[in-house]
Amino acid sequence: MPLPPSTRPAPRVRIHPLGDTALLAELGTRLDTALNTRAIALAAALKKRRDVRQAVAGYTGVTVHFDPDQTTPDVLGAAIKRLAAKRPPMAEPGRLHRIPVVYEGPDLEEVAARLKLSPQRIVELHSRPIYRVFLVGFVPGWAYLGPLPEELELPRRHVPRTQVPAGSVAIAGRQTGIYPLPTPGGWHLIGRTSVKLFLPDSDPPCLFRAGDRVKFFAAKS
């Protein structure tokens, strides 16, 4: 059944230049699924324009890379405001991914102690919601998932690890994610998955897309 269209007023758009070949169009600043849906729709509409090289949806806005020989930031900014004022398309639920997690991460005990919860409770809380893919980016295959239950909210580690193994399932703030490649990282590692997030020989080369939904479930090691 189609979801009812959003009845919220169209957000006010703020346009900021990012140099002379890109700009940032901000629809808002809050962590909000409706704002993110609008950002993804706006990015999709902008990608169809000839003067736009690429449009990347963030949590609450769109970064637009444009051809400066075909447009100016003023012209493009006005077009963005017109597009953003339109009622967004029906929010279709994104694809659902079920991801098995072995909840034996090196930080699980410490996270449990800091939150005054049992490790078992951490697992229950983390695997309960259906998360949204708010944004794909940072490194190839990385996706910012959320919102994480409030009970699991912790600031990032003070000292980031210089190398986090690929497949690590991590939390920080109201977000969760999976490290697709061995990279440095400051999030708390609570588990691992064998699911490959970065698929270099596919196009797009990543499993998750903005707007997809992700459900974790506990698996045996």
Binding site: T29, V56, G58
Partner: peptide, 12 residues
Amino acid sequence: EELLSFGLTAGA
């Protein structure tokens, strides 16, 4: 406050 992540560009 901390910002929510957004797309970046070379030169930023």
